[in-house]
């Protein structure tokens, strides 16, 4: 099963992508973007009332929700967000304590994983150069569809050194970028709990569809 674990819809202030248009695009591009679902990871927010079940039924894609928060070690994706996690942290705070986020989200049933680690200022690599490594990180976004040249390559060093698992996501802010990078799982994911369990236990890898997309258009 293949999921794009990092997408932004128009709920994020810097995205212009409606969720339904993402699904229409993925339907149309299915031969080159074989993605089974997406995870919406809006910037600094959690809307407990958002419900995409109707769109899931209409288009046949899994739609899960997470969040992208900002910490003193850069940006971190949260999966398996529940009421307890949403109450524990102010997602709008751009100076969250990363160690607290990683430890507490895990304790409360979710998982916190650093994204675009190779990016200057907001990525883990730069922070690890001057600060001790975070405890409890199990995976990092090794492949990010919005990264600049060299940023994804920097991440391998962290993976080798700390034995992190790696996953991928498009980090799409526009419809036409959804699914270009994603994560392939050995087992089916049906809901947020499955996703958290899978990310913790392994059996997944980043997949890059950019070449296929270029050749297929």
């Amino acid at each position: 099963m293949i999921l794009d674990l990092h997408t932004h819809s128009e709920a994020s202030e810097d995205s212009r992508a409606p969720v339904e248009t993402y699904l229409k695009w993925l339907t149309r591009k299915r031969d080159v973007l074989p993605v089974d679902g997406i995870v919406l990871t809006e910037h600094r927010q959690w809307n407990p009332n958002a419900d995409y079940r109707e769109l899931e039924d209409q288009y046949g894609f899994l739609i899960l929700r997470g969040a992208e928060v900002e910490t003193d070690y850069g940006h971190i994706l949260l999966y398996g967000v529940n009421d307890a996690i949403a109450q524990r942290f102010d997602f709008a705070n751009v100076r969250l304590n990363a160690q607290e986020v990683v430890s507490e989200v895990a304790r409360l049933g979710g998982i916190a994983v650093p994204c675009h680690p190779g990016r200057p200022t907001i990525g883990l690599c730069e922070h690890y150069a001057t600060k001790p490594p975070l405890e409890g990180v199990v995976a990092i976004e090794a492949l990010n569809g919005g990264s600049r040249k060299g940023e994804n390559e920097r991440v391998q060093e962290l993976i080798d050194r700390y034995h992190y698992r790696s996953f991928g996501g498009s980090d799409s802010h526009l419809v036409s970028f959804v699914g270009i990078c994603a994560t392939e799982f050995d087992h089916d994911i049906r809901n947020g709990d499955d996703l958290v369990r899978a990310l913790l236990t392994g059996g997944y890898r980043p997949v890059d569809f950019r070449d296929r997309l270029r050749q297929g258009t």
Binding site: R16, G146, R148, K149, H173, L174
Partner: peptide
């Protein structure tokens, strides 16, 4: 290098 400097709709 394909780095996206400005995006729009």
């Amino acid at each position: 290098d394909g780095e996206r400097w400005v995006t729009g709709t």
